[in-house]
Design a protein around this nucleic acid. Structure first.
Lengths: 194, 194
DNA sequence: TTGCAAAGCGGAGGGTGCCTCCGTATAGTA
DNA sequence: TACTATACGGAGGCACCCTCCGCTTTGCAA
């Protein structure tokens, strides 16, 4: 029942690793500027690499998104944990949502990633989805157990709201508008408003 | 200072009007199924009309959206007026948002239209934007004047929330999730939750 | 070092969609 | 019926998507 031939596989090639980095860097820039619809050929051009190379490293557009923004997802998930220790249950929720908004604000491409990560269907985003869901679950259940918010809101609801509110982060007054809405939403979560 | 030559202009051609209708019908179907990214060439094909004809009638994708969904926008705006008479201030808000969600649920293409109409920048959507903003303003200010909700929420905030919550109307449990969030939002609007 | 094959490169090519332009067809009018 | 304003339609130029495969580079072993 041997798992793998384990063929003493040779060291990964240096040019491959280098190109991968070049692509990630280029994608970061292109996506941040141009949003989720940005051209992959543009990314390859900017990286100074053939389009074929891009597709070999990242077989789909989503794979590239995943690779580019996984770090941000992780940071957001970690933040939830930290806030659970440092802030009251409701305040932690509020601050977490605000930070989520803030992250998106600086990276248009992040929106698409967040949306995909929120969607459980994509195998590719299973990891990100799991991390975000766990973060949302933790924040919500803590507040529920403290008896401070209603108990019928799912983590999916919270993520949906986060992603939804972040759409169109270009419009004048976006930040303040979304900040208000986050407040409204969090207030609405509190017990005894029904 | 004659405004126009008023050249006893000839009657508009029958084929033109017919094709316009064919295009609208085809667009309705294609957009409803395929969302905002659906192919315009596909619309033309489905209408049995050349692509040039499509572009002559609707110079941009947005113009087509506008024409297809203006009726829905109007209906939504009218509903706000009606609800103002038939329901309490806060309840009217809640019901209006719910209806907005419902309209989008059945028409993917509507999402894009709503988003565009919410955005003031598009001259093309000036009418729709104005109608929706007026509707939101009426509902909000009525509730504010009744002292039932906070007074720092703008019509733009409300529309942003509506559009935002309606994203990704495909996911399982979408309806109930959004329904919950609308409730949370409206609860959060109420006075005395800060 | 050298030779070799695995691993990786890159861009041509076929497909789709966007939008414009203009020769051709046709509906209204005289 | 003839004439012309009006409308039609699709070819053409562009950009992008993604695949495929001949060529290059790299790591490794002799």
């Amino acid at each position: 029942m041997e798992q793998k031939p384990a063929k003493a596989s040779r060291k990964p090639r240096a040019d491959s690793a280098r190109n991968r980095e070049l692509l990630l860097q280029a994608a970061r820039e292109v996506f941040s500027a141009g949003g989720p619809g940005a051209s992959l050929e543009g990314v390859a051009r900017k990286a100074g690499v053939g389009i074929g190379t891009l597709y070999r490293h990242f077989p789909t557009r989503d794979a590239l998104f995943e690779a580019v923004y996984r770090g941000d997802i992780d940071r957001l998930a970690d933040l939830a944990e930290q806030l659970s220790k440092e802030a009251g249950p409701v305040e932690a929720l509020r601050l977490w949502l605000r930070e989520g908004v803030e992250v998106v604000a600086t990276k248009k491409g992040m929106m698409a990633t967040l949306a995909l990560a929120t969607d459980g269907k994509q195998d590719l985003f299973a990891y990100s989805h799991q991390r975000l869901t766990a973060a949302a679950t933790a924040l919500l259940s803590r507040a529920v157990e403290a008896g401070e918010i209603r108990d019928d809101i799912t983590p999916e609801d919270l993520l949906r709201a986060l992603v939804g509110l972040c759409h169109a982060p270009d419009r004048p007054g976006w930040r303040t508008s979304v900040a208000r809405l986050v407040d409204v939403l969090v207030d609405g979560l509190k017990r005894g408003n029904g």
